[in-house]
Computed example of a mutant assay.
Amino acid sequence: MDLRQLRYFVATAEELHFGRAAERLHIAQPALSIQIKGLEETLGVKLLDRTNRSVALTKAGTLFLTEARRTLAQAQHAAEVARRAGRGEIGRIEIGYSVDVSYSGVLSKALREYRKTAPDVELGLHELHPSTQIAQLQEGRIEVGFVASFVGNPAWKLPPELDTIRLMEWPLRLALPADHALAKRARIPREALADEPFIAYVGSDIEQDRALVQLTLGFTPRVVHETRSAFSLVSLVGAGLGVAIVPGSVSTYSVGEHVVYRPLSGNTIQVATDLVFKCDGQSPTVSKFLQTLRVTEAFGTGNPGKARSVPRATTSPVRHR
């Protein structure tokens, strides 16, 4: 028994006339009769009572018609599920993101745009440090990652099997107390900060985070406090305990009127949000996700980039914030 036989039987049962059923199915009447007879032989039961003048359903045929319709409907549904999965419209996608990306608003904007095109795809969201995301991408545990990286940091490279789309870039800013003497300046020269107490953000790789601050400033700062939270960092600046280097995205954080943000002169390092993924072997769901974010205009004032805009490495990637 196959789906074709079920379709032939349903048409015949609904028409109760072999000629009309054959015309509806676009086949010859003898071929239809052969298929119905073969179905009855397979089931070992008579489905239709035939005479020269009429066709009627047997009791078994009436019950079988209900189940045949259900089976055909389920088969059609299964086929549509497969087609939608092939177009990336349903399924599940495992997404990693770093806490910095969620603070910046890029994650919410990206997912909002994607949900417009694929509302039935299930999202598996995992808050992970960028270096953990890189490892899990290589292992296949997540499929895409939203990673905060430092533009202009020569140490950061991606493994060669990973690719990237740059979604946004922000310049670094100096956060300082609103009543600080330097707050009156429109731009802060780095040399003016040599004697300032600094509050530093440190992630899972403390030495590298310290090195990046030094690279940004051009000297080793006098760090008086370290914190693992951007919110805590800005709060400590607002309390007057020091100044801090922060991404431009952090400048939206409000601590009353106690913190101001100023650009640094001579700084070329920026913070970016990159969408990282495997170069090959993408599922239709991932391909659609990437296609959506390549063409979306959700990121407004950022500087959208092209794929392969981040250097590759032949060794393990360095950790970054």
Rank of each mutant, 00 (worst) to 15 (best):
T62F: 02
Q208F: 10
P160Y: 13
V147T: 13
F198W: 12
T42N: 00
F299P: 01
L48S: 01
H17R: 13
L193F: 07
A200L: 14
S254N: 12
R222A: 12
L264C: 09
V224C: 04
I142Q: 06
L111N: 06
G44K: 02
S316C: 03
S251A: 15
K109Q: 12
R84I: 05
Y103F: 14
K157H: 14
S283M: 07
F289H: 06
R112I: 01
P221G: 08
T227R: 12
L137Y: 04
A68D: 00
A56Q: 14
L25Q: 07
G152Y: 08
P189W: 06
E89R: 10
L167W: 06
D195W: 02
P171H: 09
P119V: 10
P304I: 08
R50H: 05
P317D: 06
Q282I: 04
R262V: 08
D49V: 08
P30L: 09
I165D: 01
A56C: 02
E127N: 14
K37F: 00
L275Q: 05
T51L: 07
E122I: 13
G256M: 11
I95F: 06
P171Y: 03
E161L: 13
Q5V: 00
F289C: 04
V259Y: 04
E67M: 06
E257M: 08
S131D: 13
F18W: 09
R185Q: 15
A175I: 08
F9N: 00
L172H: 14
L128G: 03
I93N: 02
L158G: 03
E14K: 12
L233W: 04
T292R: 09
L174N: 05
S204C: 01
G19A: 14
D280N: 13
L212P: 00
P263E: 09
L47E: 00
G96W: 06
A79S: 11
A110Q: 04
A22G: 08
V250I: 15
S309D: 14
A13V: 05
D205R: 12
A28I: 01
S98Q: 02
K116H: 11
L63D: 13
E143S: 11
A73D: 11
T164D: 15
V318G: 03
T216M: 10
L39I: 02
P247L: 06
A73Q: 13
G140K: 11
S265Y: 05
L47I: 02
E15L: 03
G91D: 08
P160W: 09
T273S: 07
L236D: 01
F150C: 05
N52R: 15
A155L: 12
K116M: 11
R312V: 12
L43E: 01
S287C: 08
V286G: 01
L39A: 02
H77G: 01
S108H: 08
T285C: 06
H320R: 11
G145A: 15
I269E: 03
G91L: 10
